[in-house]
Nucleic acid binder design. Structure first.
Length: 432
RNA sequence: GGGUCGGUGCCCGAGUGGCCAAAGGGAGCGGACUGUAAAUCCGCCGGCAUCGCCUACGUAGGUUCAAAUCCUACCCGGCCCA
């Protein structure tokens, strides 16, 4: 791409992906994006030590804009994180103390960095913390410089505020003020960074537009707002949680690449196409082709696999994605014989694994005690039952009552994969 | 405080002296089917050294050859009266 040139197809590409929920004047925006690079920002409040899957969509929006030649700013909400955004919330947030906030920022900032390119010569990304321009502002200054330009009527009319005002618990003055802080951020970035556009989830619309008002009144300028659809599952719940209700963290420490990969593998068929379009950087045509192939043979789960692979690569690394995919193949039906030792090691970290003394290999009737020791069964009775029902297999070989674990059952001299039924997998790790 | 009904296995719930480890349902588990989906069907579903023993029906005692079932006290819950 030539210096200063922008990809003219960005807006139509975003539309094709279903990434645009709402914008200020679409024609003005289209014209502005054609005219040249624009600076655009998204704010992320550090409410935890890691971002989660729900943050991917806006994060990737910044990436898409950067890839199209624009300048992205990731804003870490060191200040707003202290107050708490009432949008989309039915109850008051608990306030974070300084130490927690600092820890959260320390976790989130590197994640924000990882999605954007800070070295690109023409349009490097920027990472800013709104605390920098907020912490020194006195309350009186804020009331005079920001509060004066906004009417309470205007604020109370926003959905996010109105919903809470009508709820039985009400809304604190602190959270009520959140949108002023966010509006002020936008204004500050407009003045100091030439930032003309803010993006966010559709629940952010009110807050973003308030920022535009502030820019108009205080600076006589104009900017743009773009909101993305809030990702929701077919059952209406928000994205970012697994089927079992765990948050899908982007941090490997909080959710291993394997489990992250698995969570996407379990995507509903009906969601595959949309998620490929909205959450991957694959070209629209490629997404559509994968989705069409998936529709023809949904049982192969190729759509889910591709989605899981892309996202795990993006969030963790291509190597982590490949490892997770190999481990998944073993857990879900693939043959375990001949699997690389690295894959077995990865599995051992993901499935319940028990270290067993090598000496039991020489013992008679060792299977039941081993199963108990490994926590695969709760009692001898359960072990007998399962064996009688052919519910246990060692390295994919069904075993029956009276079977033994022997040297021949060891993979790479150490590992033995135990299956209980089809869904539960455990690893036996024999010491050296 | 008085009266009354009730507390049963993971949950709901039947059982009112022996045939009760305790009906039935749900959940769970295994098998068949299958797509790491849903539905369906079959089996299992307290523990153990498995034709027997142990533990268990709010808690602690008692009556009895024998109690989840009867008696006493206590604890907890519902409802009614105060």
């Amino acid at each position: 791409m030539a210096r200063g040139a922008v990809d003219p197809t960005l807006l139509t590409d975003l539309e094709a992906r279903g990434l645009i929920h709402d914008t200020t004047s679409r024609s003005d925006l289209a014209a502005r994006l054609q005219a040249g690079p624009i600076t655009v920002y998204v704010g992320f409040d550090p409410t935890a030590t890691s971002l989660h899957a729900g943050n991917l969509l806006p994060l990737l929006m910044l990436r898409r804009f950067q890839d199209a030649g624009h300048r992205p700013i990731a804003l870490a909400g060191g200040a707003t994180g202290m107050v708490g955004d009432p949008s989309g919330r039915s109850d008051e947030r608990s306030l974070l103390d300084d130490a927690t906030l600092a820890a959260n920022l320390a976790g989130v900032v590197p994640q924000l960095r990882q999605f954007l390119d800070f070295e690109r010569p023409d349009n490097p990304a920027k990472l800013l913390d709104n605390r920098a321009w907020t912490v020194g502002v006195s309350y009186l200054e804020f009331l005079r410089d920001v509060g004066k330009h906004v009417t309470v009527n205007q604020m109370a009319a926003k959905d996010s505020i109105r919903n809470r005002m009508e709820s039985e618990h009400g809304i604190s003055y602190t959270e009520f003020s959140y949108m002023l802080l966010q509006a002020h951020d936008f204004y500050w970035l407009f003045e100091n960074e030439g930032c003309e556009m803010q993006m966010g989830g559709s629940d952010q619309w009110g807050n973003i537009v308030l920022g535009l008002d502030l820019i108009r009144r205080k600076a006589g300028g104009s900017g743009f707002a773009l909101t993305v659809p809030l990702l929701t599952k077919p059952d209406g719940s928000k994205y970012g949680k697994t089927a079992s209700g765990d948050t899908m963290w982007l941090s490997a420490a909080k959710m291993s690449p394997y489990r992250f990969f698995q969570a996407w593998m379990q995507t509903d068929d009906a969601e595959v196409r949309r998620l490929l379009l909205q959450l991957t950087l694959l070209p629209v045509g490629t997404c559509e082709a994968i989705a069409a192939a998936h529709l023809d043979a949904p049982h192969l789960r190729d759509g889910q696999r591709r989605l899981a692979r892309e996202l795990t690569s993006l969030v963790h690394s291509p190597a982590a994605a490949a490892g997770a995919e190999a481990a998944s193949a073993v857990v879900f039906g693939g043959p375990v014989a001949g699997v690389a030792i690295e894959t077995l090691r990865m599995l051992a970290a993901e499935v319940p694994t028990t270290v067993i003394s090598r000496s039991v290999l020489a013992e008679e009737n060792n299977l039941v005690p081993v199963l108990r020791h490994a926590g695969i069964v709760a009692s001898n009775g359960e072990a007998q039952r399962l064996l009688a029902q052919h519910g246990i297999s060692l390295n994919d070989e069904k075993v029956s009552a009276g079977a033994q674990v022997t040297r021949d059952d060891l993979l790479h001299e150490r590992f033995c994969l135990v299956r209980k039924g089809k869904k539960q997998v455990a690893m036996l790790l024999f010491d050296q």
